[in-house]
């Protein structure tokens, strides 16, 4: 390592070249080392431990007992009640991703195709504000709207189309959609904005009508945005905690609340650990499938 800081006056040979390369490589290693150590201590090891804990027996207070092992918590995932929570969470997350995409795509497309750059930037800022705004506050806004005195409830009652939605599954779904739509729009916007429009013109020139050109050219080329946006919406929807807690109440428990419950009032940490690992696994599988499918179908 010190070699380079002196004034070497030797000819080069493979040994010295390797030495210099090694010195450089150690420099990279030591640059990363603080972060590396931090992540090992506060991320990797905790991740391993939570997996281990999911096989531990539970003490009377709900804490894990290290040294006594059981498969109970993993078997418990098969309980009809637990299964329904998992399915409901995955279903809502999926539905939310789909609807966000359906709403978000034309929206992002509209913003990205405005003629004036000033207008585009202005609309983009309008998307960025909710994107960066406090999530809890945005969810709270719906709580008041959907409550008995809320504006949405009153409109529903006046038209006779719906009643008080707070603490129902549609309310949770609405909250998720509202919460994560901006996460879908931004990557879509970036992908569509970067599109080479000459390609669309080329398609039109080659006898594609507007719809064909969109389906054959624009849509496939914005695939990176679709994938990024879908992952950004699916992951937090699947683990949602604040939204179902504030808008769903006790009737629509999702995985996120269910896990928190195990650690707080439910007093079953090992089962909570098993659920946490499960949600991580579902997320990984979904992400991988999405990447694979996306690669083939679009």
């Amino acid at each position: 390592m010190t070699m380079l800081d002196e004034r070497p006056s030797e000819e080069a040979n493979p040994e010295l070249e390797r030495k210099a390369e090694r010195a450089e490589s150690w420099r990279g290693f030591f640059t990363a080392l603080p972060t590396y150590l931090y992540l090992v201590v506060f991320f990797v090891l905790p991740l391993i431990i939570i997996t281990v804990i999911s096989f531990a027996e539970r003490s009377r207070t709900g804490k894990p007992v290290l040294g006594e092992w059981t498969l109970d918590w993993w078997i418990k995932l098969g309980d009809p009640l637990v299964r329904s929570v998992v399915f409901r969470s995955v279903w809502l997350a999926f539905l939310n991703t789909l609807l966000s995409l359906l709403l978000g795509y034309p929206f992002a497309y509209w913003i990205a195709t405005r003629k004036s750059a000033l207008m585009r930037n202005f609309l983009l800022v309008l998307v960025l504000i909710p994107f960066w705004s406090n999530f809890l506050v945005r969810t709270y806004a719906w709580r008041t709207l959907l409550d008995s005195n809320g504006l949405v409830t009153k409109v529903g009652e006046m038209t006779g189309l719906w009643g008080k939605m707070l603490f129902t599954e549609p309310a949770v779904f609405l909250g998720l959609l509202y919460g994560y739509l901006p996460f879908m729009v931004l990557p879509l916007y970036a992908a569509i904005e970067h599109l080479d429009w000459n390609l669309v013109e080329a398609a039109r020139d080659l006898y594609a009508d507007a719809r064909k050109a969109f389906i054959k050219v624009t849509l496939p080329l914005s695939k990176p945005g679709i994938i990024a946006g879908s992952i950004l919406v699916f992951i937090p929807s699947l683990g949602a905690y604040v939204t179902p807690d504030l808008l769903g109440g006790s009737k629509t428990t999702l995985l996120g609340n269910y896990i928190v419950t195990q650690f707080k009032s439910g007093r079953n940490w090992p089962f909570g650990a098993a659920l946490s690992v499960t949600i991580l696994a579902i997320m990984m599988v979904a992400t991988i499938i999405y990447f694979r499918k996306g690669g083939k179908t679009l």
């Binding site: 070699m3 380079l4 800081d5 004034r7 070497p8 006056s9 030797e10 000819e11 080069a12 040979n13 493979p14 010295l16 070249e17 210099a20």
Partner: peptide, 22 residues
């Protein structure tokens, strides 16, 4: 870049392995 092998001299001074700032 450092050579794998060989000698580079500038006005008689060997500096194949010397960093650019020197």
């Amino acid at each position: 870049e450092f050579p794998t092998e060989g000698s580079i001299q500038i006005f008689g001074e060997e500096l194949a392995l010397r960093p650019p700032n020197k």
